[in-house]
Amino acid sequence: MREVWIYAESEGERLHPVVGELLGEGRRLAERLGGSLGAVLASPHGSLAEELALFADRVYVVQDPRPYTDEWQSQALIRLIEDRRPEILLFGGTRRGKSLAPRVAARLGTGLIADCTSLRIDEDGLLLAELPTFGGRLLTTIACPSHRPQMATLALGAFAPGPKGAGGEIIDCPWAIPGPGTMKVLGQEPLPVDSRPLRGAEIVIAGGRGLGSRANFALLEEVARLLGAAVGASRGAVDAGWMDPEGLIGQTGAIVRPRLYIACGISGATQHVVGMQRAEVIVAVNKDPKAPIFDLATYGIVGDCRQFLLELKGRLALPGAVDEKNEGQDD
């Protein structure tokens, strides 16, 4: 029976949110292939397999107390793949997925398609992966016709989670545990907890290179606080250093589906657009009336972003309220 596999990324005792998307898309592909859905869990916490078995037909568990390294996990995955020969293997487009998957693909001599935003199966059972290329100016379809497994990393947020299955079998695979490795994790500093995460935000306001300066990006963040919105950025703003890469929205960053998306100084390259086009209402502000972002905006404003943000800030501040920092100052 042909199997579609997903790599169930976990950290500590939690599965990464992308695992839900992988299970949903993996199930869809497995049904099209007339095959089954397998999940691979390589983790110190074998109990996570029960959660996965609600969605997958088989959960392959490599329980190992070591913290994650690409080294031992790639070796474990390769052993499992060589034994069970899945047809398709999907990873989330996380940093970890994008570090682990290429190692596995290189060892197996098979193809790996990066940051896919849409997958389908053709009449011959071949996986066709679509992704934006050339900075998002083109949508390209790529396949891996004659090597197996067909491997892909999926853009974060691009795929929908699926329904629960009939209850899957948990298969313990101690034989896949690799020998002692050469890499050691010596320390970890967790990310600061983000008070307004992009994922699941109702309102997102995002800035691009067109904001022109760090000061203007800070103004955007101030407006975000007043709106109760999460802050995002396009590649241009991240590259300029105005925003951490964690805030990147697009094919290689996060894909968001808020009710309201406000794009300031973002031109609208497809690389970014795939990350926000599913927002219910899109507001675009850009000084270039020909910017492609206006093609998909619900409401467009041609003009200076700073002026827009100042006007918006003025209206969002409570009537009569005084900005704390400016207390005591007259305008």
Binding site: I113, R137, L138, L139, T140, T141, I142, C144, T270
Partner: peptide, 11 residues
């Protein structure tokens, strides 16, 4: 190259 570009389209 195991992968093949099959087609391109404008978004």
């Amino acid at each position: 190259s195991p992968t093949r570009m099959l087609e391109t389209a404008l978004p």
